[in-house]
């Protein structure tokens, strides 16, 4: 490698390919990839509509589907931020249960105090998760697996294992009324949480930190990003989402019991995140993708109901879908990495 002056003047042509036809098909494929899941959702919806003889794609039924998935949706939004940092929270379902029974246990104190206690409990659980993962250096799945048990145990202890009724209508604080006559309040809360999470991830500095920490924690650290604080932030936000999910649950069912943490769909809040295309390895994905993921799984489960599949096998289908989807994405990621 002898360095002559001529060689020094020569600037190597790097990465400025002319947009030939190959480039265009590449771009088209990128666009297709971007909206592939929306397309899947539409196809599923149309299929459901045919199957139900036109009663699926009515405003009324669409609102039903959204309402059914609101609790999971809020949890999945919280889970998205955590997974973006290459973490995972297995405890969101249990925290929901804990927050729900705590809120109702303190309902005598009035709407806001009990609500605040519920939120506080959720965020506290999230804080513990965050501290364990960041400063405690405990692998995320172990830390949150422990929290899954602790929160569930506490929920049983507080409620003594019984269902607690929402006598003072804490959950109805949101109101039974529907906005514009047909948008239920739970759906509005879900939308608000989604917008807030989107705003955090895309507009606020912690959003940048989240993507950086998930993308490459060592670079993030060397660039002066507060990695530990970012981790604590996402797990606390996850805990808060679980507490909000708890209120939505109470609003919907009028009671809460500790076993709601075991409901498969709630414990599997990572399912829609993964289906939506957020990478489990962190750093890529987003909140809106998760919403598409929630809706795909929601429509799928509706289709299964329409086809007369009972409740339990749906768990199997969901588990299988996660494995399949993760497999697909990992495959794709590896292929693109090899290409580089």
């Amino acid at each position: 490698m002898s360095s002559s002056p001529e060689l020094l003047e020569e600037t190597p042509a790097v990465h400025t390919p002319a947009p030939g036809p190959k480039e265009q098909t590449y771009k088209m494929r990128a666009v297709l990839q971007k909206y592939a899941l929306v397309l899947v959702l539409l196809v599923l919806a149309v299929f459901a509509n045919i199957k139900s003889e036109g009663s699926f794609l009515t405003p009324q039924n669409i609102m039903n589907v959204l309402t059914q998935n609101a609790v999971l949706g809020v949890l999945a939004v919280g889970q998205t931020l955590i997974i973006l940092t290459a973490g995972i929270d297995l405890s969101l379902g249990s925290i929901t249960a804990l927050a729900a029974v705590t809120t109702l246990t303190f309902q005598g104190l009035g709407f806001f105090p009990s609500l605040l206690i519920g939120f506080g409990v959720g965020m506290l659980a999230g804080l513990v998760n965050g501290l364990l993962v960041s400063y405690g250096r405990v692998p995320a799945f172990i830390a949150t697996l422990g929290m899954m048990q602790v929160a569930m145990g506490l929920a049983y202890v507080i409620s003594k294992g019984f269902s607690i009724d929402d006598k003072d209508h804490v959950g109805l604080l949101l109101g039974e009324d529907k906005l514009f006559g047909f948008v239920p309040s739970v759906v509005i809360v879900w939308a608000l949480v989604t917008i807030i999470a989107w705003f955090i991830t895309k507009k606020m500095k912690y959003g940048s930190y989240i993507y950086a920490v998930g993308g490459n924690p060592r670079t993030a650290k060397a660039s002066g990003i507060p990695v530990n604080r970012t981790l604590i932030f996402v797990y606390m936000f996850g805990g808060l989402c679980a507490a909000i999910g708890a209120i939505l649950y109470i609003n919907r069912y009028g009671n809460a019991e500790p076993s709601i943490g075991n409901i498969a769909t709630l414990s599997m809040s990572m399912a829609p995140v993964v289906v939506g295309g957020t990478s489990l390895f962190g750093g890529s994905g987003g909140v809106w993708k998760t919403i598409v993921g929630v809706l795909i799984l929601g429509v799928l489960s509706n289709i299964m109901v329409l086809m007369g599949v009972p409740q339990n096998p749906q768990q199997i289908v969901q588990g299988a879908i996660i494995i399949l989807v993760v497999f697909m994405f990992a495959w794709q990621e590896r292929r693109s990495r090899i290409r580089q």
Binding site: A212, G215, T219, A222
Partner: peptide
């Protein structure tokens, strides 16, 4: 390992 975050854009 410590300088870049590969999947993020140049300006990010």
């Amino acid at each position: 390992a410590e300088g870049i975050i590969p999947m993020l854009s140049v300006r990010d």
